[in-house]
């Protein structure tokens, strides 16, 4: 599945909830389901500096395919990162760099994070940097 196809599914899922409570519950659920993050990567090197809450992200590339792992202290941030990882894991660096993340804006969730846009941009920048390094 391409990043765009995966993004469409997430966007539709979020829009399928009429109620804000259900939408945020979906994100929280994603946050709790995020796989355990290895302790050895919970260092300053992997910390997203722009994020208000602590957020670590690590990427491994095998056979030109990227795999991301992440951890945050806040479950809502973890939920958002989990969705980013769903999009950008298991794909090539080129596809990551060629596919901007639009689901937050299209699903109306971006407003919720308007005071944390620097953190979100920092996360995207870091994921893209991993992709550039992997090319």
């Amino acid at each position: 599945m391409t990043v765009d196809e995966k993004q469409k599914i997430i966007e539709e899922e979020l829009l399928s909830y009429d109620d804000w409570d259900d939408r945020i519950s979906y994100i929280i659920e994603k946050g709790y389901a995020l796989p355990e993050y290895p302790l050895q990567f919970k260092t300053n090197e992997f910390l997203i500096k722009e994020c208000q809450s602590k957020l670590w992200i690590y990427c491994e590339c095998k056979n030109e395919i990227c795999y991301f792992l992440a951890h945050s202290e806040t479950v809502i941030t973890k939920g958002i990162v989990a969705l980013f990882i769903e999009l950008y894991s298991n794909v090539t660096p080129t596809e990551i760099l060629n596919t901007p993340i639009t689901f937050l804006e299209k699903s109306g969730m971006l407003k919720l994070f308007s005071n944390r846009i620097t953190g979100i941009n920092g996360l995207i920048k870091t994921m893209h940097q991993y992709a550039i390094n992997a090319k």
């Binding site: 804000w20 945020i24 208000q52 809450s53 202290e73 806040t74 479950v75 809502i76 941030t77 919720l112």
Partner: peptide, 20 residues
């Protein structure tokens, strides 16, 4: 519960508190 999670959720219920 992280204060920021509580702040976001309370905010969506029209409860304005500060977190951090």
């Amino acid at each position: 519960i992280h204060p920021m999670d509580a702040g976001i959720l309370l905010g969506q219920k029209n409860i304005c508190v500060r977190t951090g």
